[in-house]
Design a binder for these strands. Structure first.
Lengths: 167, 167
DNA sequence: CGCAGAAGGTTGTAGCGTCAAGTAAGTCGG
DNA sequence: CCGACTTACTTGACGCTACAACCTTCTGCG
């Protein structure tokens, strides 16, 4: 009983957010698939590795940075390994853990894909927004992510960086 | 050459948007799956039908309102039909077309699921935002969707409505 | 009319993600 | 230092979505 329904403004905001989460993955995937033969998630994984020291991360660390479950990441990294974009090797300090390292070919792939991808992100999203809105979006994102991901598994990102990409 | 990389604020906004599109679907699915044995997309389909005149829509109209391809919708509606939440019948005016209609049981399912779902949407998203931010989000959503979906396939939504839900 | 092409759906398949299990290696209390 | 628990993955099966092929039914135009 006593459900607080959504008023018109809430509904407007909510529907748009749902529409974006429904459409954005397809748009990102399509461009990267076409230009670099990578899904957005694969690109993101490679980009995270490309920024890490030694271009290497433990699976669990990589999973956090990419908001993925370990199971998902394991499948994806296996496929990337089959394409020689990434290699896996046991972690010396902890024999339970696996490290994933970007190969030379993987590095080249990310570097080649990054400019077009960033351009696309600008086209489809960032350049549609006024500078104020970019800031608002970051703040809104923070507020929402604090609830969606209370453990903050996915945070710890976005330093100034530049050679990477849209991450 | 001359790629305009993302500056810090752009990167911050972008990473948060990506994180949300990665996390939100799982969060919505989990709650609805648990409480109503529906995926978010299935719920959305039922909700759209529940608002339509006669609780009936043509497949193609339903596809637009749900941002789905016809192929995807066809599979989903088939599964919903097997569960007797929806029924399909040929459209009288156009023999090519198929109508989907919510059954009584489907109606009850949506009505039963809506309050918890709206509560969850509030918890995880809307109540995390100040009223200003809700408006900003709607505006940002409009701007982005204009680029993601230039044809405006998914628009035409959000009337004041109330008996429905988070749609 | 008659036929070409468009519109509206359905279906099969392949690929990716989730969930549940399983394995192997650390950790911690007694 | 031994058993119980936890951590860090990996794997297999199943479900859902995209893509492509296909079948009807309309529509337009010569």
């Amino acid at each position: 009983m006593g459900t607080r329904w959504l008023d018109q403004e809430e509904m407007a905001a909510w529907l748009r957010l749902v529409a974006i989460t429904e459409l954005l993955p397809g748009v990102l995937d399509a461009q990267l698939r076409r230009d670099a033969d990578l899904s957005h998630f694969e690109y993101f994984v490679l980009a995270m590795l490309s920024e890490a020291p030694e271009r290497t991360l433990r699976m669990s660390a990589l999973a956090q940075r990419t908001n993925a479950t370990l199971a998902r990441l394991s499948h994806v990294v296996r496929r990337l390994e089959e394409r020689h974009l990434v290699e896996r090797f046991p972690c010396p300090e902890d024999a339970r853990a696996t490290n994933a390292r970007l190969t030379g070919s993987g590095w080249e792939t990310v570097v080649a894909a990054a400019p077009d991808h960033v351009g696309h992100v600008r086209d489809k999203v960032l350049d549609a927004l006024a500078p104020d809105q970019v800031r608002q979006l970051a703040d809104i994102g923070d507020a929402v992510l604090a609830r969606l991901d209370p453990e903050g598994r996915m945070t710890a990102l976005y330093r100034p960086g530049q050679p990477d990409s849209g991450r």
